[in-house]
Design a protein around this nucleic acid. Structure first.
Lengths: 341, 341
DNA sequence: CTGTTAGCGCTTTCAT
DNA sequence: ATGAAAGCGCTAACAG
């Protein structure tokens, strides 16, 4: 019996209770709800905890209290430089409140999304943040599990969303190009499986419309948010009989690819072709010329999103369904007036 | 009493046991060690599980079995494009074996490192992977917790390491520049708090030595692995009375900064100045000119590292203390012969 | 404010 | 091969 303690080194509540001359309940209270215990006992228990070197068994705690203090965050592609700032901000906010972020890279694979969602259902996390733009398979509103979306909207649901207005952002980008004098503005899209892509494409169309410019399907090349996609897209557009004088790319990485595509064609940016990105990643400042783009407040997105999900976890209902954040155009070197023809 | 089931929807082992007409022990066995149960009962239990829609409570499981199937991965800076490939590979390997990766961004903050290490000690994870180049505070070898290091060595410990030989890699980079004809080769270092920085600096010196070139402290500028650090470092070096004709940067991001620094000085790359990076990140292909660099097999690093820690967790001791991976020079456009003076 | 007591849901001896 | 029963470490009624 006393042998057990020798085998299993670790002290538990009972050891502390004995040492402090109180009950286990008091020990538990002191640790979880210190205000419910008299200062005197609190001090005594704390002293014992310290002396014995007691640390609560987190697995037992999670099991018993049905609270894990963990939030699962679903990221479609951790290699995409768009996410790190958001993730860091979420982690900071979570840690500050004693929560842990369980980051899950899904690569847009449905079974990964599902298996993390099952972890949530099965009590390994208290809430979930989606940046995938879609619901995990097996999701059921009746489960009533705390969930929100960040950065990318989830069509057909009531999940609270923290993001910019992507359509308006894309329209603003096109306006910016139009304001610089461009009349033939091309677009390189994102991948088919992302809501983002549709929103930015429709923002592109809205921007054209607002500028009084016609929409020509031939000026839209399909990309996939990657450097290679941007490269290929630009090549397609520049091979057109009447190529665009400016290209609005669905994100910065494809804009980088588009810049290479232009260079390969012997075009100089922005003299022969203007290029505009979306997201405002660090890479934009590394490119030559530096990239004009549209800024998304990623850090803020992360902070606000995490605060929101933590509130939901703690039982506070969301005050609105869309926490809209501002975007802004970042003017750099890759956009200029069109060449006079 | 029966009311409980109505309130707390969820089925448990007892429900399954009753439904299948067996004991809870048999249900547990069927789920955890199917081979210890007769095919007939196994089928019956499985059928009940399915029918009732039973899913084990993971928190209870973790608590009781003292196994979480979770590995904590400590990353110094998730914004650094060096890590995503490693992380993705680790996650893939872990998931394949039913494990989960708990990614922790530490920003090289000791208290973050410590608090995640405490999570390990307190039973919220089964093992830990360090990419921080140092031990978390509170680490004690006697705890005998499964831990390894990936990519960055931990001085003064016996933790198994999966990485390239950074010193040899840096020396190879310098050799490459020397082979191109350079005699005055500068270096922009990493930050002071990273082992990487020292290793690459000492590799730089070894490379000079091997080339029969003198080491001049003035040709070493201190950087911090960031774009800005590279920019500032290059400006320092290029302002020298006798500036280098080539710069070996401690990583690709600072190389990108150095390229801008050169451009700002009106230098053309590689005609007036050659630049070499380290890591082979995607950004190297986006730069103009594209960046010559040294490739680290990051995906392999992640796969091997995760397999290793999972083995340790399952009780297999490591077969060696250094799992060395190969590096290789990637030749692109940023390195050429020096200008004839 | 504090102690008593009864489990949380699961796994695991120990019998049978 | 299966069941009975004990208990992991902690928390939360409940009573006092």
């Amino acid at each position: 019996m006393t042998i057990r303690k020798k085998i299993d080194q670790r002290a538990n509540v009972l050891d502390v209770a004995r040492h402090a001359g109180v009950s286990t309940a008091t020990v538990s209270r002191t640790l979880s709800h210190p205000e419910k215990v008299s200062p005197a006992t609190r001090a005594r228990v704390m002293a014992s905890v310290k002396e014995i070197g007691y640390r609560p068994n987190l697995a037992a705690q999670a099991f018993r209290s049905r609270v894990t203090r963990t939030v699962i965050v679903l990221v479609p592609d951790i290699g995409n430089a768009f996410y790190p700032d958001i993730i860091r901000a979420m982690e900071d906010t979570a840690n500050k409140q004693g929560f842990t972020v369980l980051l899950a890279n899904t690569d847009m694979l449905k079974d990964k999304e599902q298996s993390y969602h099952e972890m949530l259902r099965d009590g390994r996390a208290d809430g979930m943040v989606l940046m995938t733009g879609r619901l995990p398979q097996g999701y059921s509103p009746e489960d009533n599990l705390p969930m929100i979306a960040i950065s990318e909207e989830i069509p057909g649901t009531a999940l609270p969303l923290v993001a910019i207005d992507n359509v308006a952002g894309a329209a603003a980008a096109v306006s910016h190009l139009h304001a610089a004098g461009h009349q033939r503005i091309g677009h390189i899209t994102g991948p088919q499986n992302r809501i983002f892509s549709y929103q930015r494409l429709s923002g592109y169309r809205r921007g054209l419309e607002q500028a009084g410019l016609p929409y020509a399907p031939s000026l839209v090349a399909s990309g996939d948010f990657t450097f290679e996609g941007g490269l290929a897209g630009a090549q397609t557009l520049l091979d057109l009989p009447a190529p665009p004088t400016a290209i609005f790319c669905a994100n910065d990485e494809s804009a980088a690819g588009a810049m290479l595509g232009a260079r390969k064609k012997g075009l100089s940016i922005p003299k022969d072709l203007s290029i505009m990105g979306f997201d405002n990643l660090t890479v934009g400042r590394m490119l030559h010329p530096t990239l004009t783009t549209l800024h998304q407040p990623r850090t803020e997105m992360g902070h606000i999103g995490m605060s929101l999900i933590l509130q939901l976890i703690q039982g506070t209902p969301p005050s609105k369904s869309f926490y809209e954040l501002p975007f802004k155009v970042i003017e750099r070197e890759s956009v200029g007036p069109p060449r006079v023809e």
